[in-house]
Design a protein around this nucleic acid. Structure first.
Lengths: 190, 190
DNA sequence: GTCTATATAGGGATAGAC
DNA sequence: GTCTATCCCTATATAGAC
């Protein structure tokens, strides 16, 4: 097989995905022009189209897939394991780290609000749905009643996304940290 | 004075703002091309630049101002009056109506997440900040302790924005209605 | 693989007839 | 006020040298 080992150096394509992601994050799908992308990656158009023959749509798709993989490993899998409590704690930690305590917005959320949602509907929908399902199941295992777990899982996801919007609107990332702390408190059983 | 009376027919400029708003809402600032705008308004570029000599930035600014005015009248003013409870109830009703029970996203939120935030920082910041301040004050008058009112006001704004993101991501507007109902419940004093 | 053209379409914006 | 025609620029994408 020609696939490189997972512990070898990452493929050149995988290596630019993070930078690509930051451009999409900051400018949205429509706003992420190739000139912004070349500036952020240091690669010329020729190199970019060599790595991503499908152009911008392929770049976005692979960035979404990379993000999805990160959350799968760091958040969804932990949520699905154990008694729920440890997974939920890990989720809050990973979420805080991923969004840089509110300094970074959610690319999937950005795509969800814009016209790009339609082109990337599956990835956008799947990301939130698997997060919500894994969280609701973890809440149940942690001792919450079924209905309570369902409601709380929606509140937590919405609270996170909304806090990212507010934090960026106010240019005050502390809004996100405060919101995350209050959400974690609501998980604790009374 | 040359200003038309407020009960007369609206200026032609004001008349296109709603359609303009829907384009910005659906496509974001960058994605709202003049060809989309001409299609949505039925006006040619000549007419558009006659109405908005400042081009797209002016269009966006006036759309933001119109939205701000609507919320000021329908939400912020009621929140500032009376004992708080009636204003908060009116806020939830107006919010549900404005966002079409989750079928419509928040243009200010869309701008906040994108690169347009920087160009329209004042309008974006002011909208959320005046909402939050009016809501926190209403919650205090309704009987909540100071700290509780501050936290709850942030939770409500974030909950609304986040629910709009989730509803659009899942293409399921019921997510928004459910979230709004739960937020209203949290306002009721125990 | 990466670069420098270059192709082609669409972007925002303006001029001037009507 | 509204249109058509047109300007110039930037967009995405491709070709081909190295």
């Amino acid at each position: 097989m020609s696939r490189r080992k997972s512990n070898a150096e990452p493929s050149p394509r995988a290596a630019v995905l993070p930078q690509l992601g930051e451009v999409f994050r900051a400018h949205g799908y429509e706003g992420a022009s190739l000139s912004l992308i070349t500036a952020a990656t240091g690669l010329g158009k020729g190199s970019l189209y060599h790595l991503f023959p499908g152009g911008k749509p392929q770049m976005a798709k692979q960035v979404l897939a990379e993000i999805d993989g990160w959350f799968e490993r760091e958040v969804f899998v932990p949520l699905r394991e154990g008694d729920g409590k440890a997974g939920i704690a890990q989720m809050f930690e990973a979420t805080d780290a991923y969004f840089r305590s509110g300094r970074r917005v959610c690319l999937v959320g950005v795509f969800a609000l814009g016209a790009a949602r339609d082109e990337f509907a599956e990835a956008v929908h799947g990301y939130f749905e698997r997060w919500r399902a894994a969280l609701a199941a973890a809440l149940r295992r942690a001792g919450h009643a079924r209905g309570e777990a369902a409601e709380l899982s929606e509140d937590i996801l919405a609270g996170i996304q909304g806090a990212l919007v507010l934090a960026r609107a106010a240019d005050d990332h502390a809004i996100f940290s405060r919101a995350l702390k209050r959400l974690a408190k609501r998980v604790a059983l009374k």
